[in-house]
Each structure stands twice: as C-alpha cells, then as structure tokens.
C-alpha cells in the first residue's frame, strides 16, 4: 500500500490525487497530498508511474500497513524505478527501457518447451 509522499520531492502537481483509481489521496495543507484512505489502496503502483517527481513509495504489502523509513527509501534508489523501467516521461525512447511487452508469449512458450 502507499506509504510515503516525499515532501521535498513533491511538486504539488496533484497528479497522484487525480490518477489514483481508488481515490486514496486528499490535497493537504500547502498542496502536499495526504494519504487519506490508505485502506482503499490496491497496491497497483500506478501513482508511482505517473509521478514525474519520483516522490511516492508504495510498499509491496497489500494486506497491512508497514512502517517505512523515508530517508532509507530515498537512499535506496527504488523511487522512480517503475517509471524508468516503463520508459515513461524523460525515459521515453531510451533503448535500455524499450517496451518488450510483445515478447510475453515467449515466456510461456519457452517454459512449456522446458
């Protein structure tokens, strides 16, 4: 579930508030998004994908909230990883992150072939 909005990265663009499919966020004081309905978070990571400031962190646990340490998350390099691997925004056109989704069928075919 969504656990963290990194204050000094957030640009107050409201995008996460708008794109969250389960309406988890509220606009807080000064425009910083608040995690207002964490229990509705479906751990889909799509807010991270849309966040060009890499200010959001979704913990992988969908069953219960977990404590996260903001400083170590920021230091971990995990922020923005989904966006980068997806080739969105400034990563668009980067051959290292080209969309190879069309090779999905190969996973099944090679698994079957052993």
């Amino acid at each position: 579930m969504i656990e963290l909005v990194v204050d000094d990265r957030c640009t107050r663009c409201d995008t996460c508030i708008q794109v969250c499919p389960t309406n988890v966020f509220e606009r807080g004081a000064g425009g910083l998004p608040l995690i207002a309905r964490q229990e509705d978070c479906q751990t889909c990571f799509l807010c991270e994908l849309y966040c060009q400031a890499d200010a959001l962190y979704v913990a992988p646990n969908c069953d219960e909230p977990v404590a996260v340490d903001a400083a170590s998350i920021v230091a971990s390099g995990l922020l923005g990883q989904f966006r980068r691997h997806s080739g969105w925004h400034e990563w668009e056109g980067d051959p290292a992150h080209a969309n190879l989704h069309w090779r999905m069928g190969e996973l099944f075919a090679r698994a079957r072939a052993g």
Partner: peptide
Amino acid sequence: LRAILPQIQPAILLPFQR
C-alpha cells in the same frame, strides 16, 4: 529472459526488489 523481464513487465519485480 531474466535480463529483459523489466522491459516485458516493469511491475513484476517491484515487490521482490522492495
């Protein structure tokens, strides 16, 4: 295939890596 998995399915490895 492991090497290109993030380019096939960018989200699949997130829970593992985290």
